[in-house]
Design a protein around this nucleic acid. Structure first.
Length: 1009
RNA sequence: GCCGCGGUGGUGGAAUUGGUAGACACGCAGGACUUAAAAUCCUGUUCACUGAAAAGUGAGUGCGGGUUCAACUCCCGCCCGCGGUACCA
């Protein structure tokens, strides 16, 4: 009984027990031994070592979800692990850590539903993740593990926030500086309108004396306009269902990315990060990093730089008085200025009420009401042409003509100035708007010499455009900007789509802000000023010594419903006037890679020495879905820290590798419905709860009627007497329904009937119509891997069956790392067979078969060509072809019955990054002390790679007709003579000299006849 | 619509600088071993045609053109799939 049990646990054939141990490839005992050895010898712990070159190889840390890992998650981890192990064996000091992005919505949603504290859920999920990762055999230095929800960690997230809060962006120096330099400036010279960074929209100008006379509160209100982390009243993406504000990158198609709940625009007072100051540098930095073009392009689009021109239009309020109202528009096509026939303001534009005439007031109110009623989803899905005339006109800055001012929802308040000059002749949206409302169109560009050019293409010759007439568009743009600047009616300007990042979440499970609100004239202590609507509005930073500000317990995790977080329900918290919002998910993840360099430091987020040694991440592995969110915020924060002298680099991730997604293969079975109609009777249902093999179903006649043919015979045989009816006089109609089942119930395409019957009670009595092989085949479809689709494959199951080495190699063998591909375990046997075959190079029936015999040249050649191939391919991150190369080597070494240590020991080293367990086992068997993973990787010896002869394909007119073996150093003429003498070639030349003879040494020979 | 990526046997994929298209693996077919099965090993496997076989001929990397002695690879024009993005002035 005991023996039987062990045998089951090992998942190997019982034969093992008739043989001495160690002869058959027994991965589970190997894994057990190796894990013990690695833990005992602390093989993967690293420290700074100035005598070795450093390499920082990082995986995007996961959010520990309750569902655990599926086979898609570890794809990138396996790749980075192979790379890290390889580089370690190549003599690099490799930092390869792992941690958890542990704050986040799912745990909190779960808490709302069940009352379980998110900390509990999260800790449990982390344990699951860790156990799963340990099984796969990663070489992470777990002594450096971090969790963003750990107070020892988020103390420094709060510290990061304070650094942002206490800094401003000095545009003259083009970098962030401590806020004290700004205060010093205000103390010395105040803030006058001539200062480059002064924005009259933010606050009025003041003198140095004014500044000194300001109250703390007044000063703070001004400083809020400059701090990198600031609180302001802004339009935010409000998600009612989640009860919280979302960042732009968390909104997709007007719905929340998590959960797909509707999102509306709402004005709210909340924290933002002044990332827009970094737009240009974030753009520039992309040119210096080794990331995929697609991610860089996504970031460029997100930042959305566009060069253009600000132009002022004076408003003609009435014919009698002109009180100087000015509308500023932003345009990238100043050349089209003479085609402007109306202006359009965003419905939220602040001048709109002033511009609306008494006659238009009623119509305007109706329109604004309509705009307000439209959700973001509606606005994006049905793009209606809507708008309303204000009743007022502006004056064209060049022609002085009256131009009507409209408002329309297609103009966005948040971009440019929130107002546009409409050029219906040259802009698609403006044209449709003009057509709908009967506004005039002035043609200004002659595109006749550019056939095929679209309405918005920047080509053509200017017409009807005064001083621009005859110019090419590109020249006209410059000429107009120059003229506008000369006349002082506008200026050249660069605009960005990028918005400041919303940094508040009205949720519980996140980092508390190290902020309390001023409620007394004395900083830092409570006060209430009468009649001050903004009484709670002056944030005061906690001092560093007060960190971490611990997240308090609450009883109820639901949002308050009035837009505040559950923290507002904690009385102590409120009493202290702490901020009740918490930080968003990217707060902790924007800097975690820095913490790994010095994870337990209580005095700094990381010491300067360690940062200087490890520097930024050399290779970062992760999914492409973080293209703009995490990757952009991390770059931003790194640049801020660089400016403030906290780190020595301004890009966090030098090289980025995006692994593809592993999709699930969903399985479906065919449920058969059939009716039988005996003569003169009404049809009756037969074959209840029957499932038919896919191939049998496809072999049935497609018209839905069964006849007495082969398929029919098979059906009858399978179904027994239920189908025992007379088809000569009656008919049987059938139809079929695809039913989704769990992938675990199948083996490749074949259904496991017993497992299906056990899966759900309604299948307990299922009956099957099998194919000729006695199998029930399923239908398969590739979809996203998800619980609800029943197509999730757990790595634990795969490892239990094939071992971790096989799992790792199969993940790599699936295809190129960056490509998305479905998980299909059909091929895993191939990798498993390979590992067994590999093992048999070292062990046969009689045991260890490796000898000290001198191998022959052929064996050396096999080894060294494989070393070269594998080394080159790891460097290129082409892990799939590495596996193939090792398969070829094992096939060839088996064929020549190689058993020499001089070949087989390096071979074990070669496979070590891919199959760390089996490599370690063999390495120990060779009698080495220390882990294989700290040994030196083999190096290809050129002497075995050089060929003294080469087999040339000989083609005639590009078609291969013969092969010839020629010495490596043969000359073209000699080769020609040898080739022309070939019988197969003479057939094509007919003895004539070829028109041309091409000889590419080491490659090919081609004749033209 | 725009941007990015991709399209190769029955399947996953290989071909790294323009140089034997289909490596390696799965699956399938046949065979060996076995009382039998599993495991393992061997052979074949792009398609079509000819042939008993050996072999030969033709076609072939989404489609249509082009450059070249030679194109999966480079150029031009399309088609399809995936991902991102969308009133951004």
């Amino acid at each position: 009984m005991c023996v039987f049990k062990t045998c089951m646990a090992l998942h190997v054939s019982p034969k093992l027990f008739y043989l001495p141990t160690g002869m058959e490839y027994d991965f589970s005992s190997i894994e057990e031994r190796c894990k013990k050895l690695w833990a005992e010898q602390r093989v993967y712990e690293v420290s700074e070592n100035p005598s070795l070159p450093k390499l920082y190889i990082l995986d995007m840390f996961p959010y520990p979800s309750g569902a655990g890992l599926h086979v898609g998650h570890p794809l990138g981890y396996v790749a980075s692990d192979i790379y890290a192990r390889y580089k370690r064996m190549k003599g690099y000091n490799v930092l390869h850590p792992m941690g958890y992005d542990a704050f986040g919505l799912p745990a909190e949603q779960y808490a709302i539903e069940t009352g379980t504290h998110p900390a509990v859920t999260t800790e449990k999920a982390i344990k699951t993740f860790r156990a799963q990762m340990d099984k796969i055999g990663f070489s992470y230095d777990w002594s450096r593990e971090i969790k963003t929800c750990d107070p020892a960690y988020y103390k420094w997230t709060q510290w990061m926030f304070l650094r942002l809060f206490n800094s401003w962006y000095n545009r003259e120096h083009d970098k962030a500086e401590d806020i004290s330099t700004l205060i010093a400036r205000f103390e010395k010279e105040g803030c006058h309108t001539g200062w480059k960074q002064y924005d009259p929209q933010q606050h009025p100008p003041f003198t140095a004396d004014d500044w000194k006379a300001f109250s703390f509160k007044q000063r703070e209100r001004i400083l809020q306009c400059y701090r990198l982390a600031y609180r302001s009243f802004t339009e935010v993406n409000w998600c009612e269902a989640l009860g919280c504000v979302l960042a732009n990158d968390e909104v997709k198609d007007g719905k929340s990315e998590r959960g797909g709940h509707p999102v509306t625009r709402k004005k709210m007072r909340q924290w933002s990060l002044r990332i827009t100051e970094y737009a240009e540098r974030l753009l520039e930095g992309l040119n210096r990093i080794d990331w995929s073009e697609s991610i860089k392009e996504q970031q460029r689009n997100w930042i959305g730089r566009s060069e253009g021109c600000l132009i002022k239009f004076n408003v003609q309020l009435s014919k009698f008085k002109d009180d100087g109202l000015v509308i500023e528009v932003f345009t990238t096509r100043p050349d089209t200025i003479f085609g402007v026939t109306f202006l359009v303001l965003a419905p939220e534009h602040e001048l709109l009420p002033l511009l609306t005439t008494r006659e238009q007031k009623a119509a305007m109110d109706v329109y604004l009401q309509y705009v307000k009623s439209r959700s973001d989803v509606e606005r994006q899905q049905e793009k209606k042409i809507t708008g309303c005339f204000t009743g007022t006109y502006a004056l064209h800055p060049f022609t002085g003509k009256e131009i009507p001012i409209w408002t329309a929802e297609y103009v966005l308040a948040g971009y440019g100035t929130g107002a546009i000059m409409a050029v219906p002749a040259d802009d698609e949206r403006d044209r449709r708007f003009a057509e709908k409302f009967g506004l005039p169109v002035i043609e200004i560009i002659d595109k006749s010499m550019y056939p095929g050019a679209g309405i918005e293409d920047k080509v053509g010759r200017m017409i009807n455009s005064d001083f621009l007439n005859g110019m090419e568009v590109a020249d006209a743009i410059q000429a107009t900007i120059n003229r506008v600047e000369k006349l002082g009616i506008g200026k050249r300007q660069v605009n960005y789509k990028l918005r400041d990042a919303s940094f508040s979440r009205q949720r519980y499970w996140g980092e508390p802000f190290p902020i309390r609100y001023l409620v007394q004239e004395r900083p830092d202590s409570p006060f209430v000023e009468e009649n001050d609507p903004d009484e709670a509005d002056i944030p005061v930073a906690l001092s560093e010594s007060e960190l971490p500000l611990l997240l308090p317990d609450v009883q109820d995790f639901r949002p308050t419903g009035d837009g505040r977080s559950p923290l507002a329900k904690n009385e102590e918290w409120i009493k202290c006037h702490y901020e009740t919002d918490t930080m968003p998910g990217y707060a902790g993840s924007s800097w975690y890679f820095l913490r790994y360099t010095d994870p337990h430091n209580p005095n700094a987020f990381a010491s300067k020495d360690k940062l200087r040694y490890w520097q930024n991440v050399d290779v970062y592995f992760g999914g492409a879905e973080h293209a703009v969110g995490h990757l952009l915020y991390s770059r931003f924060l790194t640049k801020v820290l660089f400016d403030l002298g906290e780190v020595m680099f301004d890009e966090p991730f030098k090289k980025l590798v995006n692994q593809g997604m592993i999709q699930g293969v969903s399985k479906f079975i065919y449920r058969l419905f059939a009716e039988y109609a005996p003569p003169g009777a009404s049809p009756q249902k037969i074959l209840e709860n029957y499932y038919i093999s896919k191939d049998v179903y496809l072999s049935l006649e497609a018209d839905g009627e069964l006849r007495r043919n082969d398929a029919w015979q098979r059906l009858s045989a399978e179904a027994g007497n239920e189908l025992n009816c007379d088809v000569n006089t009656a008919y049987i109609r059938y139809s079929v329904q695809l039913v989704r089942i769990n992938v675990a119930l199948t083996e490749g395409d074949v259904l496991d009937e017993e497992k299906l019957k056990a899966w759900r009670t309604d299948y307990a009595t299922a009956k099957f119509i099998r194919n000729a092989q006695g199998q029930v085949l399923c239908h398969a479809e590739v979809e996203k891997m998800s619980k609800s689709k029943h197509n999730v494959v757990n790595p634990d199951d795969v490892i239990a069956r094939y071992g971790a080495d096989c799992f790792r190699m199969f993940e790599m063998f699936l295809g190129p790392l960056e490509q998305s591909k479905p998980w299909d375990d059909k091929g895993i046997n191939g990798v498993f067979n390979f590992l067994k075959k590999f093992w048999r190079l070292y062990y046969d029936d009689k045991g260890w078969r490796v000898t000290d015999n001198e191998p022959d040249t052929a064996a050396y050649k096999i080894l060294h060509k494989t070393i070269k191939k594998v080394t080159d391919d790891i460097e290129r991150l082409n892990f799939n072809t590495c596996v193939s190369a090792m398969m070829i080597a094992v096939n060839e070494l088996t064929a020549i019955k190689c058993n020499s240590r001089k070949i087989l020991e390096p071979l074990a080293l070669l496979i070590a990054p891919f199959a760390p367990f089996v490599a370690e086992e063999l390495w120990q068997q060779f009698g080495n002390s220390g882990s294989v993973h700290l040994a030196r990787y083999p190096v290809a010896d050129a002497k075995y790679l050089a060929e003294d002869e080469h087999t040339y394909p000989v083609s005639v007119n590009g078609k291969v007709r013969a092969e010839i073996i020629l010495p490596a150093n043969i000359t073209s003429d000699e080769a020609k003579a040898r080739v022309l003498a070939l019988e197969q070639i003479q057939k094509w030349t007919n003895g004539n000299a070829p028109k041309k003879f091409i000889f590419v040494p080491g490659k090919i020979i081609n004749l033209v006849v």
